[in-house]
Design a protein around this nucleic acid. Sequence first.
RNA 1: GGUGGGGUAGCGAAGUGGCCAACCGCAUCAGACUGUAAAUCUGACCUCUAUGAGUUCGAUGGUUCGAAUCCAUCCCCCACCA
Length: 376
Amino acid sequence: MPGIGTFEITYEDPHSKARLGRLWTAHGPVDTPVFMPVGTQATVKSMAPWELEAEDCQILLGNTYHLNVRPGMDVIEHFGGLHRFQDWKSAILTDSGGYQVFSLTKLRQMTSEGVWFQSHVDGTRMFMGPKESMGIQRILGSDIAMVFDECPPCPCTPEYACQAVERTLSWAAVCAEQPRAQGQLVFGIVQGGVYPQLRERCAKELLALGAFDGYAIGGVSVGEPEELIMPGVHMTVDILPRERPRYLMGVGQWWQMSESVAAGVDMFDCVMPTRLARHGTVFTRNGKYSVRAAGNRLDERPLEEGCSCMACRRFSRGYIRHLLNVSEILGVRLTALHNMHAYFDFISRMRASIREDRFGEFRAETARVYGPAPAE
RNA sequence: GGUGGGGUAGCGAAGUGGCCAACCGCAUCAGACUGUAAAUCUGACCUCUAUGAGUUCGAUGGUUCGAAUCCAUCCCCCACCA
């Protein structure tokens, strides 16, 4: 078995920058391109670990900020780390809390050393800087820790984006020096908003630290116009080293993933399959739709015809629509089960298309079904 | 039979002379969700040829410049007493 942190590139697409790879972690291999379900609070909402295992899920996310608020590190330490706590045997990647700098803007204050958060649960003030974040991730024992970054919103001024890059870089340097859990990898994060020069500078200085096992593109899909996303991904990926895994944080629209893979991205995570499931929307090979729609009332077909997930094998749309309408827990469990299956199916079909030299077709088909609405 | 209370849009429920096409909740319908403060949020919800018009608050008639709101009669429901 290759050493922890090894990233093997097993195939490169001659027609795009896509590649197939395998990243070795302390809890096994992760085959890329990969979709990582988000399990912020030590659970992928509404799903049991064995249901993810059934999808051959090799890696999950956890969240530093949220797990530090609840249950707190004393509990995690008591249970011997996040894997044991939630009984997840494969890899875990922990987000550093950098995204909460963005999503909890109203509840935090920036300083150059770190961020004061006011707990969204009980208002308690807590400080998180690069040291604190890495300290928590060490206790969590994740396989991949992310550096603590500042994820600025869009729109934001070039001056502010520049400041965020500077903070992210200085924090990254601190993160790189912190003690890690055994076998823990650490990824750097490129910020820079919609400003290519800033992204370039951030990427190059991160590389110069020479301390990271992989590189992430952060601050994407935080309010910027759709047409700015892909060019930014392309230019950033092009600076990152070929031999290290690349992770596009938070992005999960299907066509964005297939285009990003074509640009050379290896890893994705997104709340979309589970969140939309809870809100009654399901993904299929032919697009997404709302199960709650009136037209599904008497529909005896499964959520998606031909789908082999547990929800589709047994239940009708009409039944699942009913469960959602009466707020029965099983309803959102079934849509989540289906959406997660659809996401894994999507990624595995994408991998197969690369391997079989059909990736161009695959991208075209994905864009046709899931692409952004053509500009008016 | 007597006494008291009550009938408001799919349901529940405010409103007791003009600011009422009528608060609010539920249900229903549509849309949004991208490193999860999200089983959440936004909007629509009498009708129409719809930034305007028409018809509503048990029924009919009346008072009034103006009524869901006041008066009369009738119909129906509930409680208690016979």
